[in-house]
């Protein structure tokens, strides 16, 4: 295990005019760590995620990422070409709505293979074999490889999106409500799959969710956001079992018991 973090975030803020998106967020993320960002809608968690994944430029603050060569690079000073390259090789982004992260009109196999082709893979047979392997890892039958995601259920689409993101062996994956909008049983399967993949591949992940159960299951660390600010952070089980901030206590006490 390395002693250096993968991602260093310092005093990151994003303002929409006078409105606060996220305000003064700082944290480090180490390889293999899953960080959950929780809070209600409008708390700034998605703004934070979009800033970190460079889909949005922050108003101030810095974020540096340790590249594969061990050098830290300031994300917001990279050229767009470099950032986009990072996005499709060393990073992944799992959208809440799979349609936002998939090409709905090309086959499942091509969806998985696209990143490989984007980095210059030009052997059809190898690309297809890799796609078959990844489909099986996300529990999609091999005989669905030539079907379009339009013909898939919500849970399958989400699993396909995950395979599409992980095929290049990224080290950091951003997830925006990865289980949102899925049935509870489908959610459970997906969570289990994600847990397994994260452990097996040693992925670092930043997961935005409003579902505290998802956060508990997937993450080791947690940040609670309210009105754009981080009101509490720490070990996931510590934050959930011994919430200190008034807002976290409210959030935890609002969980429905089954």
């Amino acid at each position: 295990m390395t002693d250096e973090p993968l991602l260093r975030v310092s005093a990151l803020s994003k303002f929409y005019g006078s409105r606060v998106g996220c305000d003064n967020v700082s944290f480090d993320l180490w390889p293999g760590e899953v960080l959950a960002v929780v809070g209600e809608s409008g708390s700034g968690k998605t703004t934070l995620l979009n800033c970190l994944s460079t889909r949005l430029l922050p108003s101030s603050g810095t974020a540096s990422y340790r590249m594969r060569d061990g050098q830290f690079r300031e994300l917001y000073r990279m050229s767009e070409a470099e950032r986009r390259f990072l996005m499709r090789t060393d990073w992944g982004f799992v959208h809440q709505n799979p349609a936002d992260g998939l090409r709905m009109t090309v086959s499942a196999g091509a969806n998985v293979g696209e990143r490989l082709m984007a980095v210059g893979d030009r052997h059809y047979g190898k690309i297809r074999a890799t796609a078959v392997d990844w489909l099986s890892r996300v529990e999609i039958d091999e005989d669905r490889i030539d079907d379009e995601p339009r013909a898939f259920s919500g849970g399958m689409r989400q699993r396909l999106q995950i395979a599409r993101n992980l095929v290049t062996g990224p080290r950091l994956v951003f997830m925006d409500e990865p289980t949102g909008g899925l049935d509870v049983s489908v959610q459970a399967r997906l969570l289990d799959l994600l847990r397994g993949l994260v452990t097996d591949l040693g992925l670092a992940a930043i997961v935005v969710t409003h579902d505290l159960a998802v956060a508990r299951l997937l993450s080791q660390r947690m940040m609670v956001m309210k009105d754009g600010r981080v009101v509490e952070s720490g070990l996931t089980d510590r934050v959930l079992d011994d919430p200190r901030a008034p807002y976290t206590q409210l959030l935890v006490s609002s969980i429905l018991q089954v």
């Binding site: 070990l235 089980d237 510590r238 079992d241 011994d242 200190r244």
Partner: peptide, 9 residues
């Protein structure tokens, strides 16, 4: 016990 495990602050 929970404090010793880091589960309670």
């Amino acid at each position: 016990l929970k404090m010793l495990y880091g589960n309670y602050a």
